[in-house]
Write a protein that binds this DNA or RNA. Structure first.
Length: 530
RNA sequence: GGGCCGCUAGCUCAGCUGGCAGAGCAACGCCCUUUUAAGGCGUGGGUCACUGGUUCGAACCCAGUGCGGCUCACCA
């Protein structure tokens, strides 16, 4: 962050960073945590969790702090239901009640279902500049690394039961233990804990296979803590300073609420600084992906249409506790225009203190939207609409678009290409039909036109040949209208014919500019044959 | 029932560690000799949901009311 005479940032990420330092005190390093259960495709809603933490991590680092950014895969959670978007439903059903790390990968060849879901995201996160340290809970639990934490929960069984009962409708029974066990024989969590020896021995009985044994917390892979206890145990284990959570956790009586109490009373430390983030919804993907089931939109789908910077921008520019939707319809254009405006603002820093204050907010959002550092040269500014039109004229060939533009600097090429790829994907997959066109080929048959219309096209072709090189757009428009005038046809009849001859549609981009973009040579070959 | 969020122009929203009420779209007008899906300039448009409080000053802070949404009280 460039600091010369800058007003103090009021961005939520910076405010939270300050709050962490204030509440946790000055520390050698701060631990920021995020985590989710890979019980299915990791969707874009889950991504809000990760990116929210990443933004706060960046804010802390920009203040010169050392930060450990951990990301926990809760892959020792139970496989509770089969997501509808997964193949091999019957096979998956046979693994219900087992930990997801033991469910086979039905999508490919990963070692497990959990791993497959994890890998999908892990491979993509660096693309948007997110690089956490991954922690795999299945591995932690199965190696008994949490033995002491589990034992502590058992020792405080009554305290925890009281804490949980405060927000339950029905009290936990007297013989309840604050642990859950995966049966060592059948791997299911259909077990009942029947005793604890006061040290490391836990006795259980499996209700599905009848297995009954006593396991040692120091060596067993079977015992895990239920979520509401697991969370504070890990806060203590990793010394977590900051972890946000979704609104489902943040209600009174929700899991953050009880975890906070357990953290303090059982594990002896304050809960991390936190905030609540809201859900995000999807707009404009009607029927495109979903057929039978719950449509799962994940990061990879978003990156098809939004560049990594614009993707970050949507999250960095929205306060976490407000809901917003990620759009795939015409709103895409607006988002890009907003981002471009933000970008131009960043590179045009004002002088007056008053203007500087407004600038600061946008500038900070821009910085937080970048994947690796601020570009040295402002990226090439082109309206996404124009870019889409150009791409359609050149059939998606980005190099020809860049050649046409003529003034793209070498340092700007990569980002422009990335933007063009997204624009092209959007046009192909999501743009309304009205928006789409493709230029006719020279080899295509002529369209059917009446006698006068044919003459008009021919005349237009002649005028293009005669005047286009020597006139600018404004001057040439006279010749365009002359065609209609000379042949005594209404422009409202004339324009559609031109569009039809060019793109087989009755409407199109504003004609004069459109003709200039297409260029004389191509026009003459398309129109001259009438 | 508890908690959280929202209510600002016709629409979608920004503005919220208090300082002249904003943007985009829509509308209207003008220009590009003329509509359309990329243009330019301009105009109109507001009880900032309501009531009260704090303050020199409130869309913003506090207390309450109404309407709408989400969420928890199983599991994670």
């Amino acid at each position: 962050m460039s600091n010369e005479n800058r007003p103090k940032s009021s961005h939520w990420a910076d405010i939270n960073a300050e709050k962490i330092i204030r509440e946790k005190g000055k520390k050698e390093h701060y631990t920021c945590a995020s985590g989710i259960t890979p019980s299915g495709t990791v969707h874009i809603g889950n991504f809000r969790e990760i990116i929210s933490v990443d933004l706060v991590v960046r804010a802390l680092r920009d203040k010169g702090e050392n930060v450990r950014f951990i990301y926990s895969w809760d892959d020792y959670d139970v496989f509770r239901k089969v997501p509808k978007n997964m193949p091999k439903q019957e096979l998956l059903e046979t693994f219900l009640r087992k930990p997801i790390t033991l469910v086979p990968d039905v999508l490919g060849t990963e070692e497990s279902y959990a791993r497959a879901n994890e890998k999908n995201l892990e491979e993509l996160l660096p693309v948007v500049g997110v690089k956490p340290e991954y922690i795999y809970q299945a591995s932690k639990y199965r190696n008994s690394e949490y033995a002491e934490g589990i034992k502590k929960a058992l020792e405080n069984r009554d305290v925890i039961r009281r804490q949980l009962n405060e927000s339950r409708t029905t009290d936990l029974p007297d013989d309840w233990y604050p642990v859950s066990v995966f049966c060592a024989k059948c791997d299911r969590d259909t077990t009942k804990v029947t005793g604890w020896d006061g040290h490391y021995g836990v006795e259980y009985e499996c209700e599905s296979c009848g297995n009954k044994e006593t396991v040692d917390l120091k060596t067993t892979a079977a015992v895990k803590l239920p979520w509401r206890i697991d969370w504070p145990m890990r806060w203590a284990y990793e010394d977590v300073d900051f972890e946000p959570a979704g609104k489902d956790h943040h209600s009174e009586g929700g899991s953050f609420d009880t975890a906070r109490k357990t953290s303090l009373e059982v594990y002896g430390q304050e809960a991390p600084v936190t905030f609540q983030y809201d859900f995000i919804s999807i707009k404009g993907r009607g029927g495109k992906i979903s057929s039978s089931t719950g449509e799962v939109v994940s990061l990879i789908d978003v990156l098809e249409v939004y560049t990594p910077e614009v993707t970050r921008y949507m999250f960095a520019g929205t306060r976490p506790n407000t809901e917003f939707s990620i759009s795939f319809d015409l709103d895409v254009l607006k988002i890009y225009e907003d981002y471009d405006k933000c970008e131009r603002t960043y590179f045009e820093k004002p002088e007056s203190p008053k203007a500087l204050k407004k600038w600061e907010k946008q500038a900070r959002i821009y910085e937080l939207s970048q994947v690796d550092g601020i570009p040295e040269v402002m990226p090439y500014q082109i309206q996404i609409r124009l870019l889409s039109t150009l791409l359609q004229i050149f059939s998606g060939d980005v190099d020809r678009v860049i050649e046409y533009l003529g003034d793209v600097k070498p340092q700007q090429v990569d980002k422009l290409k990335a933007k063009a790829q997204c624009a092209w994907n959007w046009v192909k997959n999501f743009a309304p039909e009205d928006f789409k066109f493709s230029l006719r080929e020279d080899t295509d048959d002529k369209i059917e036109v009446g006698e006068v219309e044919g003459k008009a096209l021919k005349l237009l072709s002649d005028k293009i040949e005669a005047y286009m090189d020597s006139c600018d757009e404004k001057e040439f428009s006279t010749h365009l209208y002359d065609v209609a005038r000379e042949l005594e046809i209404e422009t409202s009849d004339f324009f559609p014919v031109v569009y039809k001859a060019l793109i087989s549609k009755e409407k199109g981009p504003r004609l004069i500019s459109f003709l200039y973009i297409i260029g004389k040579e191509k026009l003459v070959s398309l129109l001259g044959k009438y």
